[in-house]
Nucleic acid binder design. Structure first.
Length: 423
RNA sequence: GGAGAGGUGGCCGAGUGGCCGAAGGCGCACGCUUGGAAAGCGUGUGUGGCGCAAGUCACCGAGGGUUCGAAUCCCUCCCUCUCCGCCA
């Protein structure tokens, strides 16, 4: 959510934000409604003040005087009721539009329509060159009997899968390694609910708008999260934190659920796009300081890329263009990891900076010092690792001519072997 | 799932129709006192919306209703706690 006072003063900036992000919101309709609502509210308030004052006086009148006054009061009341009747509808519409206003992208965000226009910032690591016929992760997984997609589909429909034996173990090793990686960097590990309330989804910016993408448990008015970003960011909603509590750096491993509606026919093969996966997510809540947010964004990006270095995977970082940014994001960097079967880079991480967009919706504030008024915190998040998507990169990049998979040095101790698929 | 109790300001707790945005206490802030501290005394101390401001409105778990007027009466819902049952 944007600061509505600021929106009134800077409507052009908001219009431009919508245009750059390719979001069709009618800013003028909002401003118009906003004006109407405030006028109506003021009218009701002054009328109510009138009512209140005379009601108070009424209590002290003699019985005869009272009867006369009562009649007048009844009339006032009827008028007030009529005026009040318009408010709920206005408020609802107002709130509805306000929730859709886009956060302006940072100046350094490239303009563009969609992910095709994201701008590559740098490439890291050596893309492997194979002197043998490259196998896809599906071929490799089936070859070793550690991946079973047909039976995953049998159990739960398309975009489901089974990992077995060494691959299931490798997955847990990677996830654990990622958690340790973040704890070493000062993050507090948290175990979070992955089934959350509507307020959490709305507060983090997924609702309204993202309902199609989420599994809803309507009977219990709860949703399965698509990322631990949601519970992690919402932990302190409706709270006012002390300045010395910030920044709060947390990491969580959670199952993630995505309906992938509207992706029919896209990435249908293998483990790239699935309905359920594991993700280790980092979230930071900090002070309302743009410079700090920008610096923290880079630090969080580095936590993820350091891990990719340790996993010996080649990747690139892209500056996500305006049209590919979410409503609330100020800037986003994606890490895309090399996947031989795609003969290209596939998105494995997404690092977002929100400033106070989420915290406003969440009513999450802090007091810079004891004397000052509370300010809304800043929030940021980034993937640490997501599986099975990272397994695609691990299997394919580290495959050998005979189909074995070399386990990167970092994972050997926990995995217990140097190669997956070794007899 | 069954039975009961309860949700009031940072906390405890009073308040059963108008003088209640709310007594009292604790805590906190400032001042007096003191060599310094404690105690004591005094003063102050919720949040949010709108407004240039004076101000005004809203908020006693949430929503609705009764009334000229609701923390207080009525209805619905939510949450917390205790006991019993069931279960990881």
């Amino acid at each position: 959510m944007l600061d509505l006072k600021w929106v009134r003063e800077n409507p052009d900036v908001v219009r431009d934000a919508a245009k750059r992000k390719r979001i069709g919101v009618d800013v003028d309709a909002f401003l118009d409604l906003d004006q109407k609502l405030r006028t109506a509210q003021q009218q009701v308030e002054s009328r109510r003040a009138e009512m209140k004052a005379s009601s108070k006086a009424l209590g002290k009148l003699s019985p005869e005087e009272r009867n006369v006054a009562l009649a007048a009061q009844k009339e006032l009341k009827a008028e007030l009721k009529a005026m009040e009747a318009e408010l709920p509808e206005l408020r609802e519409q107002h709130q509805k539009l306000a929730l859709l206003l886009p956060m302006p992208p940072a100046a350094e965000v490239p303009d563009g329509n969609d992910d095709l226009e994201n701008v590559e910032l740098r490439r890291v690591g050596q893309v492997p060159e194979f002197d043998f016929e490259v196998r896809s992760h599906v071929e490799l997984g089936e070859m070793h009997g550690v991946l079973d997609i047909p039976r995953g589909v049998k159990l739960a429909g398309s975009r489901n899968y089974l990992l077995l034996g060494e691959l299931a173990r490798l997955e847990q090793c990677v996830l654990q390694y990622a958690l340790n990686h973040m704890v070493q960097r000062g993050f507090e590990q948290v175990s979070v609910p992955s089934l959350v309330s509507y307020e959490c989804m709305e507060g983090t910016g997924y609702f309204p708008g993202g309902e199609e993408q989420a599994y809803l448990c309507e009977r219990d008015s709860a949703s399965l999260v698509g990322t631990a970003e949601v519970p992690l960011t919402a932990i302190h909603c409706d709270e006012t934190l002390a300045a010395d509590q910030l920044p709060i750096r947390r990491v969580a491993l959670s199952p993630c659920y995505r309906r992938e509606a509207g992706t029919y026919g896209k990435d249908t093969k293998g483990l790239y796009r699935v309905h359920q996966f594991w993700k280790v997510e980092q979230v930071v809540i900090g002070p309302a300081d743009i410079e700090w947010s920008i610096a923290e964004h880079q630090r969080m990006l580095a936590h993820a890329t350091d891990l990719m270095d340790l996993l010996e995977l080649p990747y690139r970082i892209v500056n996500v263009c305006s049209g590919d940014l979410g409503q609330g994001q100020v800037q986003k960097f994606d890490v895309e990891t090399w996947m031989p079967s795609r003969n290209g880079y596939g998105e494995t991480h997404s690092a977002s900076r929100f400033y106070d967009f989420q915290t406003r919706r969440l009513n999450l504030r802090y007091k810079p010092d004891a004397a000052s008024k509370p300010l809304h915190c800043h929030s940021l998040n980034n993937t640490v690792i997501a599986s099975p998507r990272v397994l695609i990169a691990l299997l394919e990049n580290h495959q050998q001519a005979d189909g074995r998979i070399r386990i990167p040095e970092a994972l050997r101790a926990s995995f217990g072997k140097d190669f997956l698929g070794e007899v």
